[in-house]
């Protein structure tokens, strides 16, 4: 006759229970991150060396747009003649972020009134160097800016 209440049996049951629970918890601890990893993150693509800076349709001629390029700002410029160019938006003077001035048709830094022409060349004010130019490619409606 099986005695189900001897201390040995109770102990065995307890150990088995502990073993099962803790191994189960370990599995959960292992698979929870894996499951989370599989869920697509909110930002769905890595976008650093090249970035979709804007839509062609949202950029009017004679306008500019600041975009995030890695950890630095870039500026996308559509010239009055419709050509699209991209530059680093960091002013070469004191690292302010430059902007596009529609009425004057140049790139302008508000901090010290530095001016760059539409090729990124410093033409007036304190900036010592031209803005770094990026490569622009248009794929469908997307303007893709890449370095080099």
């Amino acid at each position: 006759m099986e005695n189900t209440n001897t201390p040995v049996t109770t102990r065995r049951k307890f150990i088995n229970y502990c073993l099962g629970t803790s191994l189960g918890a370990t599995l959960v601890a292992t698979f929870y991150p894996i499951f989370k990893f599989l869920v697509p993150p909110p930002i769905t693509e890595s976008t650093e060396a090249s970035v979709v800076a804007a839509k062609v349709s949202e950029l009017k001629p004679n306008s500019g747009k600041i975009f995030k390029f890695g950890s630095k700002p870039g500026i996308l410029v559509k010239t009055p003649s419709g050509e699209i160019r991209a530059f680093s938006a960091t002013c070469t003077h004191l690292d302010c972020t430059v902007q596009y001035k529609e009425e004057a048709q140049h790139i302008w830094c508000a901090c010290h009134n530095g001016r760059y022409d539409l090729m990124g060349k410093n033409v007036a004010g304190p900036p010592p160097r031209p803005l770094e130019q990026y490569t622009v490619n248009v794929r469908g409606d997307e303007i893709i800016v890449s370095k080099g």
């Binding site: 991150p33 894996i34 990893f37 909110p42 890595s46 976008t47 060396a49």
Partner: peptide, 12 residues
């Protein structure tokens, strides 16, 4: 960039 993306944006 994709490894950086894995390290930063992807959960875990």
């Amino acid at each position: 960039e994709s490894v950086q993306f894995i390290m930063t944006e992807v959960r875990f």
